[in-house]
Design a binder for these strands. Structure first.
Length: 214
DNA sequence: CGAATGATGGTCT
DNA sequence: GACCATCATTCGT
């Protein structure tokens, strides 16, 4: 990594940040950076999935595929979607609970040209990471990263706070301004469709689908 | 702009 | 054999 990128990388979050239900962690992930190798995005859209949630992969209990979802918080849970795409979650709450936040979209911050290369023929900035499958493709995240610890300084992939923000400050760490966040129902599921467990950064052109006009 | 659809593979019934 | 936490493309308005 270049010196400039190292300075941009910010500080990782304490594991305690993730040791809460996904519905609490999810909105606070907005604005954080997800790094993998020489590429990084700012998270602009997330969804929470909980253990008593019929839409969650954890609903039926641990399976080989969902093993990491029941592991320690702050780790990655990666699964294959529709046999074609990869989707990445941040594991939350205590080990064994089965709570996670799906990373649905990001804004390219570092290595946009490399991400465009991986996403070819797509090239427009706002198309590179505007969906959970696109995000993993752009960041080159696949089954290899399933279970990886996102809290390791210098690790890859890893989550970090914006530059200049101390993620260890305050009771829950980094918290975005509430007026910067929009809350909606989740997308692309058939069960528990009324739970308002999707959050977006207000006005971001990098989300998978804009929120309905108020 | 929106609706419809095929690709493609693992998991569950 | 059905069902997907999706995406890119095609076709219709």
């Amino acid at each position: 990594m270049t010196v400039a990128n190292a300075e941009l990388s910010g500080a990782v979050l304490p594991r305690s940040f993730f040791a809460r239900p996904a519905v609490e962690v999810a909105p606070e992930l907005l604005g954080l950076w997800l790094w993998h190798g020489r590429t990084a995005v700012r998270i602009v859209e997330v969804e929470a999935y909980e253990p008593d949630d019929p839409a969650s992969h954890s609903f039926i209990g641990p399976r080989p595929r969902t093993r990491s979802m029941f592991g320690p918080p702050g780790h990655l849970y990666v699964y294959r979607s529709y046999g074609v795409h990869w989707c990445a979650n941040v594991v939350c709450d205590a080990p064994g609970v089965g709570s996670a936040v799906l990373l649905r979209a990001g804004e390219p911050m570092v290595g946009a040209s490399l991400m465009a290369q991986r996403r070819a023929p797509a090239s427009a900035l706002r198309q590179l990471c505007s969906g959970p499958g696109k995000l993993c493709s752009a960041l080159a995240i696949d089954a290899t990263q399933d279970g990886v610890d996102l809290c390791r300084p210098g690790g890859s992939p890893r989550l970090s706070a914006p530059v200049g923000i101390d993620p260890g400050r305050g009771p829950t760490g980094w918290v975005p301004n509430p007026t910067d966040v929009i809350r909606t129902t989740r997308i692309g599921i058939s069960k528990a469709i009324d739970q308002p467990w999707r959050w977006l950064l207000t006005g971001s052109p990098h989300v998978s689908r804009r929120a309905a006009q108020g």
